[in-house]
Every structure is written in C-alpha cells, then in structure tokens.
Computed example of a mutant assay.
Amino acid sequence: MPDVVVFGLGGTIAMTGDAGVAPALSAEQLVAAVPGLAATGIGVEVVDFRRKPGASLSFADLAALSDAVAARFADGADGVVVTQGTDTIEETAYLLDLHHAGPQPLVVTGAMRNPTLAGADGPANVLAAIATAASPAARDLGCLVVLADEVHAARRVRKTHSTSGSTFQSPNGGPLGVVVEGEPRLLNRLPGRTAVPVDPRLPKRVGLVTVTFGDDGALLAAADRLDGLVVAAFGVGHVPEDLVPPLADLAARIPVVLASRTGAGSTLRSTYGFPGSERDLLDRGLIGAGFLDPLKARVLLHALLAAGADRDAVAAAFAVAGSETGQGAWPWPG
C-alpha cells in the first residue's frame, strides 16, 4: 500500500479554544481523529511542521516546507498532504506547485469549520486528501487542493466565500475531479506543468495594488521600495489614464504585471487602444498575467524573482503560466 506523509501547518482545521479558537491540535491529533483512515490501508506518517493560522504563514515557511516535501519524496514517499488554514490556501498551494517538479501527488487541504463546531469538515477533508495523495491517478498533476470532495488544480483554485464549505472553486476550467466513495476520480487534466527552482535569495518584496474607481495612483508611490509589482486592473486590463505615466515609469525599473481584478477570465493583449487600455500598458512595458488572477500572479512573480529571473525571463514565464495552454518557452527545463 502507498505511504503518505502529512505535514501539519495549523489553521482552522487544528484550532480549539473557548474564548476564540487558535491553532492547538498537533498534526498527529488531526490524523488520529479521521474516521475510516485505518480501513484504507494507506500508511501515514505525520510531521508537525508549524502551528500557525493561515494568515501568518510566510514565504520563508513555504520555502522550508518545499524543501521538506522534496526530501520526503526523495526518501520514497508516494504522496504528501499539507493541512493548513484556508485563508491563504489559494496562494500557498500555488507556490508549492511552482516548487514541485516531481510526479508524486502533493495535496493541500484545510477546513472551514473548526473542530469545536457541529459538522466540522476537517476529518472528511483530510481523508479525501490522503486518498488523493495515495492515488496513481493524481500523479503528474503538480499540487492539488482537495476540499468538500472536489479536486482542484493549485494554479486555478480560489477561495470565493468567507464561510461556505464549498468556498473553493476553479473559475477558469472547473475542478479536475471529485472524490467518490473514498476514491479520487480525475475527469480532466492540466495541459502542462510549470516549476521554478527554490532559491535561497528570499525574501523578495512584491506588491499588489488593486485599481479602483476614481483611483489617483497614490498607492503606487510605495512601489519604489519593491522588487516587483502586480496591478489588479479593471476588466481585461484597464486603468485610469492618470495611472499610465507612473506605471510606465515603474515598468522601466521593475517587472510590473497586469492582471484582472474580476476573478475569472484572461487579460487581453490587443483589443482596446485608449490610454490606460491593455494594449497601451503592454506597449509601455507591463507584462500580461493572462488567466492568472492577481494573487497567483504575485506568487509567481515572487518565485521568479527569488530564483534570479530577469525581466525577459519573467515575461516568458507569464506567457506560459497565464496562457492555460502549456505551450511556450518556460525559463527552466522541464
């Protein structure tokens, strides 16, 4: 039977308490509370890696976790599960995906209802995640997110509701599959994989600015202290005309990525031509995010800069990762 390693990072899934819950349960306690796990025959090893709320996880934590996961895969683990707070799963799972080039399943899960509440979803999510990590069907898919018996690709998934148990959705393409009677059933696959080396040159400082109605660009002044910037623009990649000069100036000095704040769909390249349109901004040196939402775009830009990518390499990487076709020249060999 396969062997799966479970890394616990904390989060709602591990929280208890009377006056406001906080991470308290160990990874061992989480796994021990999962009904039906022993009957699967899957060998499970548990690592109590962190005990933090999802909001407090850092790039340094995830770099250390990526190294630890790679070491377990090198030692022969068939799959890995990471349990953590759902606040940042859509970002941390994508970062893990970028740092995982191997074929073994890497699955992230969590819970929307903590263990003190009726109907806590943690045990069911852990069981489904372990089953997915142990399944040959989940190989070569990179990092997956499994909650509410749905299997999502890390680079697509988003948290779309603050409290709902079905909060995790993949607007661009839908889930990759479902877990039925304890068995993951993968219904579609990603067109390609994109991996970035884990590099010790962390940290890099990458900002995210969301453009709003009547925006005067005041927040862009802080970008002088950044290594890179993501702009969450209107619609297909539009900003107010007054923001064009400062964005063009920034793009001449640091990589500036143009994403859409809408939550689904791709930025465009050549449809609109007015000042502040996507065509105007790309001509001024901004880099289109394509289908990557602003949070994912920031994670990718951070990983690229930490690995030493220059602007040309950043642009090439976004052309591949944001296209959803798997085609193009990725800066690192597969």
Rank of each mutant, 00 (worst) to 15 (best):
D3A: 13
L9I: 06
G11R: 02
I13P: 03
A24L: 13
A27L: 06
A32W: 00
V34W: 09
G36Y: 04
A39H: 09
E45M: 09
V47K: 13
L62R: 07
V69M: 03
V80T: 00
G85M: 05
D87E: 13
I89R: 05
T92W: 05
T92F: 05
A93F: 06
Y94D: 03
L95V: 13
A101Q: 02
P105S: 08
A111S: 15
P115A: 00
L117S: 12
L117F: 03
A118V: 12
A131E: 10
A134F: 07
L141M: 14
C143M: 13
V146H: 10
V151Y: 06
S164G: 08
F168M: 04
G173M: 04
G177Y: 02
G177L: 00
L187P: 01
N188F: 01
P191S: 06
V198D: 04
R205F: 07
V211F: 08
D215C: 04
D215K: 06
L220G: 02
R225L: 07
L226P: 01
D227W: 04
V231N: 04
V231K: 02
V236P: 02
G237W: 03
D242I: 14
L243G: 03
P246V: 10
A251T: 09
V256I: 01
V257F: 04
L258M: 12
S260R: 02
R261P: 07
T262F: 09
G263Y: 00
S270A: 15
Y272V: 04
G273V: 12
L281V: 12
R284M: 12
G285T: 04
V299T: 10
L300D: 02
L304P: 02
A306G: 06
R311V: 14
A315G: 11
A317D: 06
A319I: 08
G322N: 12
E324C: 11
G326D: 13
G328I: 05
